[in-house]
Nucleic acid binder design. Structure first.
Lengths: 229, 229
DNA sequence: TTTATCCGAGAGCACCGCTCTCAATTGTTC
DNA sequence: GAACAATTGAGAGCGGTGCTCTCGGATAAA
């Protein structure tokens, strides 16, 4: 049950986020202006502060919105592949991340680019949506591991790392061994590194005529790291 | 031969870059203000425009400065390891990138974070210093390959990618095969992905008690991708 | 119907990037 | 040494920003 007042407020908030996303696309994170959003909302600049405490709070809203959009895209892509095809699921995840990043570069930049200085994302709002991709990746690997689709060698590990990993395993109810956790974190960061390079244009003058082909050529490398087959 | 006037101008420019770097550290790229730099320079705000055309040009100066600092750090680290130890050289490179990024997070963010919106780095000034790290990496791998320290399987490659790679090989005078180029680009992006995650704090709540150990644990993975031994 | 809450408008503060004009300084040339 | 030109700093000013404050009207709750 919500009063009409709450309804109206909620709708205005949604409209602010929508306008903010558009401005993000057009002018980037640094160019996001509360005054401009207020103008597009058809309201005087000071009125926007009735809904958003400050610029950072609008950034947080857009951050959560972006994490959820990426999470939805990745989940949908993974769900489209059979569970007994872990390689296919992993590739679906990787491609979904890349495609979403290329489709929404400004939003992607807000999520995975340099942090906005002086702005610290409030953990209690952002960690849950922000961990959806790695969570999905771990799910895929955990399931693959159970089905004997992971083949990794053994290597002695730094004891402090092993302790961290034990904790993570306990919290998430996982059974994968340390070596797979190492590989998962490596592939996670590597995947976003590759997408970063492409979205942010860091491949530089070495522009590849077919970036998608380069990405595809990298997938077997990621799978080798994971021992996924 | 340079006139005293040119000397003075050059010194002022250097001072501006120094002040700019400090401001970058303190307030980040988005908070970099020409007026504030002018104040620190002990000059009225409009006078700064005698030296720097606009804010973007100062960003370019800092960008080039940063690329060169990183390149110097990496080169020095690699030179400290014997050439017949390609694994050691690769690790020196990787660790140098990580350490420099952690030591200069704001500068690192300017180089490898989300691009400043509306600002396009002028290629003719930035590509040369901006490619020093990948160039050094390729040098290490090329030399290792010549010495039979690279063992990679064969895989059929997308023909357009193969064409790109041929061109790169010709331009740089390289002899490594396609598979090693793929692996080099993968490791390049993966390395910066890992450093991004750590510098930008994207590992999130999954804070590792010893990030350096995690990084070290990833090094063998990179080397496996490269077939480096 | 009264009361309390909410919300938009407007003025205002300090800051920003950037431009313009003017005066002082400096180095060059006759 | 004097006239000249180039360089540089100061100052005012424009439109923009984030953000705060106060005020008055609309609206829901009592």
């Amino acid at each position: 049950m919500q009063t009409p007042r709450e309804r109206a407020r909620q709708q205005t908030m949604a409209e602010i986020v929508t306008i903010g996303r558009r401005h993000l696309e057009l002018h980037g994170a640094a160019g996001l202006s509360l005054r401009a959003v207020a103008r597009d909302l058809g309201v005087v600049s000071s009125a926007i502060y009735r809904y958003v405490k400050n610029r950072d709070e609008l950034l947080t809203l857009l951050l959560v919105d972006g994490y959820d959009a990426l999470g939805d895209a990745v989940d949908a892509a993974v769900q489209g592949v059979a569970e007994d095809d872990p390689v296919g699921r992993f590739r679906a995840l990787a491609r979904a991340v890349r495609q979403w990043g290329l489709a929404e570069p400004a939003c992607y930049g807000l999520l995975f680019g340099s942090p906005v200085p002086g702005y610290e994302a409030p953990a209690e709002q952002t960690t849950a949506p922000g961990t959806r991709v790695i969570f999905q990746l771990v799910q895929i690997l955990e399931s693959a591991d159970h089905n004997g689709r992971i083949a990794l060698g053994d290597r002695t590990l730094d004891p402090r790392l092993a302790a961290d990993f034990s904790k993570i395993r306990d919290e998430k109810g996982l059974t994968m061994d340390d070596q797979l956790v190492v590989a998962a974190v490596l592939v996670w960061s590597a995947l976003f590194g590759a997408v970063n390079f492409e979205v942010f244009g860091h491949y530089g003058q070495t522009t590849f005529s077919d970036p998608a082909a380069l990405f595809e050529a990298h997938l077997p490398g990621y799978e080798a790291i994971l021992g996924l087959r």
